[in-house]
Design a protein around this nucleic acid. Structure first.
Lengths: 104, 104
DNA sequence: GTAAACTAGTTTATAACATAAACCAAATTT
DNA sequence: AAATTTGGTTTATGTTATAAACTAGTTTAC
């Protein structure tokens, strides 16, 4: 009936990160922070969870004297995202008695 | 960029409950328990959260000598669900550089 | 040249959440 | 009448998400 939702991706911020990384392939920490409106601390924690899950790769380097953290989606991350979206459908494809919402 | 996801609905079990209630309009506790594979305790907690959010109504009565808990979606619950689904789209409509997943 | 402010993060503390386990009250079965 | 089942609720515990505090260094202003 309802498929389980990957708990790694069923998080607003992590889903946004993965969504972004699928479209851009590679992004700086600061880019992700701006696009997601996350706090730095939260972002730091969440990209590490994604890394531990194997969904992204993290490369740390220096750029113009400053530390720079680059994130990249992995093959496994792409597959997990696609699978998550598929599973979500089982919750959204509702066959309502009334057309949902709009007018009784 | 990314729309906020209603935290009441961004929960696997609560989303499943609301999804069900939209399709059936009214359901018994035991029906929800079977369909969602939730434990009774968890279901009890989560339907109360949905009630407190005003997304469902709960009616307690007796049927054939046994207590019976009936859940019904509210107008507000339907709207919240529709809104949640809309917001979700902002995370899923990705414009990937490569077609996501399937082959490089 | 040093104090103040800023960049780019990480770590830690706290509050909210999900869940299972334990419990309750009554009904039914043996 | 003891054991089991129904239909739940409450409580305890571990997991999450988040903000706040902190680290380490850089740049700017005086």
């Amino acid at each position: 009936m309802f498929k389980d939702l990957d708990p790694i991706l069923h998080s607003q911020l992590r889903l946004a990160i993965v969504s972004l990384l699928i479209s851009v392939k590679e992004a700086e920490f600061t880019f992700l922070k701006e696009k997601t409106n996350a706090t730095a601390g939260n972002l730091s924690v969440q990209i590490n969870k994604l890394k531990e899950a194997g969904y992204i790769e993290i490369v740390k380097q220096f750029k113009d004297n400053y530390p720079q953290t680059i994130c990249k989606i992995t093959r496994s991350g792409i597959l997990a995202f696609e699978n998550y979206v598929q599973s979500l459908h089982s919750y959204l494809q509702v066959t309502p008695i009334d057309k949902p919402g709009i007018k009784k």
